[in-house]
Simulated scan of single mutants.
Amino acid sequence: MGDANGRHWRTWRAATEEALYGAEGFFRTQAPAAHFRTSVHVSPAFAAALLRLARTVGARTVVDVGAGRGELLRALHDLDPDLGLVGIEVAERPAGLPASVRWSADLPDEVDGLLVANEWLDNIAVDVAELDDARVTRLVEVDAATGDERLGAPAGEEDLAWLAEWWPLTDGPPGARAEIGRPRDLAWADVVRRLRSGLALAVDYGHVRWRRPPAGTLRGYRSGRPVAPVPDRSCDITAHVAVDAVARAGERAGADETLLTSQRAALTALGVDGARPPLALAGSDPVGYLGALSRAGEAAELVAPGGLGDFWWLAQAKAGSAGTGAVDLCQALGEPDPPTALSPSPSGRMPPSG
C-alpha cells in the first residue's frame, strides 16, 4: 500500500531484489556489459589466469555464478574445450553459447572443481540500517519510483546481531549507516556447503571491519556512469561487500582453508604480467609489438592500484571426501596481500569500453 502521497515504501533489500531479479528486473532484461565492465571484459588474461588456477587445484569443472551473458564461459571454452563449464544466472541462456556449456538459474547440488563468483556478492540485495537521533538502529525504507528514503522499523534481532559483530553503529553519531551483509553471508555459506571438493572464489570490491565506510556504499550504475540508486529496474544497484564477514560464513559452512588477498597479488601469482614489451620489438616486428603492447595494457588494467587490482579475492577450499588432498591456497595464489584502498573506485564498477 502507498501512503497519503502515493509513495510505496519498502526496505532496500525488498526493493532491490525486485528491481534486479523480478520478472522484469535489470539482470533479466539488460546485458550487464552495456552498463559496466568486469575483469572478464577487460582482458582474456583474466580467463587464462582462472584456467591456470583450475589446473593448479586439479579442477576439471568451472562453475560461473552470476554468469552474465556467458563471457567468461566462452573464453574458458576457447582456451580448453574439454573443460566442464556451468553458468548460473537468472537470465535466459545466451544465444551462441557452446552447446557443451550447461546453463541454469540454480546452483548445482554439489560442486567438484572451481566455483567462481566474479562481482556476484555485491549484487545480492541488502538492507540499509541507520542510527536515529534516539540512537535506535532502524531500517531505511525507499520509494522505488523516486529513490526517496525514510526511516522505518527498528532492525530485528538477527540483523542487530550481525551489525554488532561486523559493522557496529552504536558508537557512531546519529545518521551513521551500514549495509547489513547477512544475506550475502548466507548466500556464500550455501555455495561453500555445496562444494564437495575444490575451490570457491569470490572476486569483488569490498571492505573489512576496521575500514567500514561510515555513510555506506549503496550505488546505482547505468550505461557506464554512476547514478542515484533508484530501484526502478533501470539501473544496476550495488553495495560493497563486507568480505571478512563473508569469509567467516564460509568457514562456518565447512571451508578447510581461507585466503583473502588482492586481485593484484592473485593475478600476479597466476602469471598476469602488465610489463610493456621490449621497444626493440617495434623495429623487428611492428605488428607483433603493437599486439603485445595492447595485451600488456589490458593486463596492467587488471592489476592496477586504485582499480581492478584493488578488488578482493576470497578463496575458500575444501578437501575431497574421496581422499584428495587439501588445496594449498598460498601455493596457488601467493601469500595474502589485501588491498590497501577502501574501494577500487567511488562507484566500484568499471565503465564499459567504447
Rank of each mutant, 00 (worst) to 15 (best):
W103H: 07
A105S: 10
L72F: 00
A99F: 03
G87D: 01
L79K: 06
E89C: 05
L72C: 03
A99Y: 03
D112H: 13
A75G: 08
L72S: 08
W120N: 06
G113L: 14
A75S: 14
V101K: 14
D80Y: 05
G87V: 04
L107N: 12
L121W: 10
L76E: 07
W120T: 11
A117K: 11
S100W: 01
L121G: 11
D109Y: 00
G113D: 15
R102I: 01
S100Q: 12
E119M: 14
G84K: 11
L79S: 09
D106A: 15
D80R: 09
D112Y: 07
A99I: 04
G87E: 02
D106C: 12
R93P: 01
L79V: 02
V86E: 07
R93M: 00
L85I: 01
V86W: 13
A91Y: 09
G84N: 09
A117G: 15
L76S: 08
A91N: 03
A95G: 09
E89M: 02
D112M: 04
V116I: 15
L85A: 03
L115K: 10
W103I: 05
L115R: 15
W103Q: 06
A91T: 02
N118Y: 11
V90C: 14
L76C: 07
D80I: 00
D82R: 14
A95P: 00
A91G: 10
L114M: 10
L85Q: 02
L72P: 03
L115T: 15
N118A: 10
G84F: 07
E110H: 10
L121N: 09
P81H: 07
W103F: 07
E71H: 11
G84L: 02
A75I: 00
A99C: 07
A75W: 00
V111A: 09
L121Q: 06
V111N: 12
V90M: 07
R93V: 01
L83K: 04
E92A: 13
A105V: 04
G96L: 03
G84D: 08
D106K: 10
W120E: 03
E110C: 06
A117N: 12
E71C: 00
P108D: 11
L79Y: 10
G87S: 03
A105P: 09
E71P: 01
H77N: 11
R102W: 03
L73C: 05
D78W: 05
V101A: 10
S100T: 14
L83R: 08
D112T: 15
D106R: 15
L107G: 11
A95L: 10
L76I: 01
P94I: 01
R93L: 00
V86Q: 05
P108K: 10
V101P: 10
L73S: 06
D80K: 03
A95W: 00
D80N: 03
V101Q: 13
G96Q: 05
E119C: 13
H77Q: 07
I88H: 09
S100N: 06
R93S: 01
E89K: 00
V116W: 01
L115S: 13
G113N: 14
E119A: 12
P94A: 06
A117D: 11
